[in-house]
């Protein structure tokens, strides 16, 4: 059995880490779903305020998305610009 060299090991675990980092998207998905549900309720109650509700929903979703975007950036860096390989 050939010995595994350090670089291959780091790359393999980086790929696993990138996949695991995206678990952080879970919370954002749930949160945005709840926000969209509440917005639908609000439109049903006050159809004339639809424009304001959609704008508030989009802005709130954008801020709520931050954590998922950070997860995505970490995953992308682990895959495309891995800083750990250089430490070897």
């Amino acid at each position: 059995m050939p010995a595994i060299d350090g670089k291959a090991l780091i790359l393999a675990f980086s790929a696993l880490g990138a996949g695991m980092a995206m678990i952080g998207g879970l919370g954002t998905g749930i949160g945005q779903g709840i926000a969209a549900g509440k917005a639908a309720e609000a439109v049903a109650r006050q159809p004339e305020a639809q424009g304001d509700i959609i704008r508030t929903l989009l802005l709130g979703d954008a801020v709520a998305e931050t954590s998922a975007i950070y997860c995505l950036i970490i995953a992308l860096i682990l895959i495309f610009a891995n800083p750990l390989v250089r430490l070897l």
Binding site: A62, E65, T66, I69, Y70, L72, I73, L76
Partner: peptide, 12 residues
């Protein structure tokens, strides 16, 4: 966070 939001969405 604003920069990463735009960058992450478009690059993704």
């Amino acid at each position: 966070s604003m920069a990463f939001r735009l960058f992450g969405n478009i690059l993704g």
